[in-house]
Design a protein around this nucleic acid. Structure first.
Lengths: 211, 211
DNA sequence: CCTACCGATCGGTAGG
DNA sequence: CCTACCGATCGGTAGG
């Protein structure tokens, strides 16, 4: 068995390359067809294996889904959490949080797609764990928005509604982003962040003078 | 066979009540578990029927999905199109478009959820038709935003990016909206519309004075 | 990692 | 609308 070390969830993790191949093939197929519409045989075929052979490396189809969803949830949380906790003003923190989120989506498009689209197909315990992490992620945005309102930097809007609207816009990204689309990744991140932030900012919005 | 007339897609349509029962049960189950994870037997059980009995009323499982998705797509298009084409200023049109969209989601929550979540499981022809209608719907928003920029009412941002961001935020609604949630429907519509529009407006954003 | 198999469930149909 | 069935496919396993 070939063993390498790959970075996942911010820490080094021992894993064999075959398992990573399975992870990538499953991410790709789940993201395109959806978890339920993808059979274990589909994944095996992608790797030129026979159907049952996958089970030398993974214990169940749901384990593959869990691996994808759980890693994606961790990527968002562990990357954005320190930004939310930094000492910068709320608007700057939000801009950086949005940019970091978009970067993860772009860098791991199929995993992010599966995360947003198929987490409900996990078993009860794992699904609840993901809901917990999603709530924690939403709370990061809610808190920074509340900070910004308290500091007078943001309009006096409902932080929960604002966080939901912002995250909804971000969560839609995997649905339409294409690497060969009309925007470069940095144009996309800055344009998107500007747009979402402008709705929250107090005073003149964006690059235009007040009338 | 009992025959009634129900309003669908803005026009009267002949249909028997049993078929409407099936439509509602399928919408509910598809929205909760997803199309692929819902069996024809699940739908039959919800209506106290035997598995095969559904096929007296519908020709295939995919036909049920098509009925739901196609009606939802039509509801959005036919409701919002006249608003987009009205002679009001772009910001007022956008506000009304957003409110109308939210109203449809709230009034037909399970159908809207299935529409956004399961349209990819349609066969090729029907899926392409839905993509066509989604593009047309997006074009309505893109055009009004472009109008607003040309008239100097909106900031000079990329209309396509703005339309996508706006619609992504709206499309996320079925994922978190609950009728017993903390906001009344009108609070939700106005708060959400205000938030999304503020990011586009030129000059002082929303209810605060410019600094 | 393969061959060969398991029971369960799937969408759909025939005949009444 | 039911009973009884169809072939196909599913996730998963035993034994090598």
């Amino acid at each position: 068995m070939v063993v390498v070390y790959t970075e996942a969830n911010g820490q080094l993790e021992r894993s064999d390359t075959r398992k990573e191949d399975i992870f990538r093939a499953a991410s790709s197929l789940f993201s395109i067809r959806g978890y339920q519409a993808t059979s274990v045989r589909d994944i095996a075929r992608e790797l030129d294996l026979q159907g049952g052979s996958l089970y030398s490396h993974v214990a169940s189809k749901e384990d593959m889904l869990w691996e994808i969803v759980s890693r994606a949830a961790d990527a968002f949380l562990t990357t954005v959490q320190p930004i939310a906790a930094s000492r910068e003003p709320a608007p700057a923190r939000l801009t950086n949080m949005i940019a970091a989120h978009i970067e993860i989506v772009v860098a791991r498009l199929s995993q992010a797609t599966v995360f947003f689209q198929d987490w409900r197909h996990l078993g009860d315990d794992r699904r609840n764990e993901i809901i917990r992490r999603r709530d924690a992620y939403e709370a990061l945005y809610r808190q920074v928005i509340a900070d910004g309102i308290a500091a007078g930097d943001l309009r006096n809007i409902d932080p929960k509604l604002a966080a939901i609207a912002l995250l909804s816009a971000l969560n839609g990204l995997p649905g339409w982003y294409r690497s060969d689309g009309p925007w470069s990744n940095s144009d996309l991140a800055s344009g998107y962040a500007d747009l979402l932030l402008a709705g929250l900012l107090r005073g003149p919005s964006g690059d235009e003078k007040a009338t």
